[in-house]
């Protein structure tokens, strides 16, 4: 359908519930996934808080959309870049993040992690490699 596939990067730099940015970003990603582009997500600064496990929003009256990140694989969004320095600054490691996996159709539907831990310098490379960068 689309002749030219463009590289889209969604940059997430905000914690999940204090502002609407994180949830809006996720919604745009899900809608945008219909357009068959090469989509990546970047999580840096407070954006890494979006992926932590054990979120429970019952008592604040907001939807726990952290579960929705695990559906991204169904939408063929399988590249979630997480910045190592941002995790470390916040006292977090990969173990504090939820598992987000996708089924690799080209590898007998093997379950693979969508999360790719990269350094700040590598994040800068990822950003520089895009056609379109959308910030949230």
């Amino acid at each position: 359908m689309s002749e030219t596939i463009k590289k889209f990067l969604y940059v997430n730099r905000k914690a999940p519930y204090g502002t609407i940015y994180a949830q809006e970003s996720l919604e745009v990603v899900l809608i945008g996934a219909a357009f068959d582009q090469d989509v990546s997500l970047a999580f840096l600064d407070d954006g890494v808080f979006q992926l932590t496990k054990g979120q429970d929003t019952k008592e604040i009256g907001l939807k726990n959309f952290s579960a929705t990140y695990r559906a991204l694989g169904d939408y063929e969004v399988t590249k979630l870049y997480v910045e190592k320095e941002s995790l470390e600054e916040r006292g977090l490691t990969l173990d504090d993040l939820q598992n987000i996996e996708y089924e690799d159709e080209d590898d007998d539907y093997a379950e693979k992690s969508s999360i790719r831990l990269i350094s700040r310098a590598e994040m800068a490379e990822v950003m520089a490699d895009q056609d379109v960068v959308l910030s949230f």
Binding site: R13, L44, D45, R120, M123, A124, E125, M127, A128, V133
Partner: peptide, 24 residues
């Protein structure tokens, strides 16, 4: 290259510093 825009005061949050840390 990339044109980065920053619209928040660097004394309010880390956005400018984060931006500078991701430039090429």
């Amino acid at each position: 290259g990339t044109l980065h825009t920053v619209n928040k005061s660097p004394f309010q949050n880390q956005t400018l510093l984060s931006c500078l840390g991701h430039t090429h």
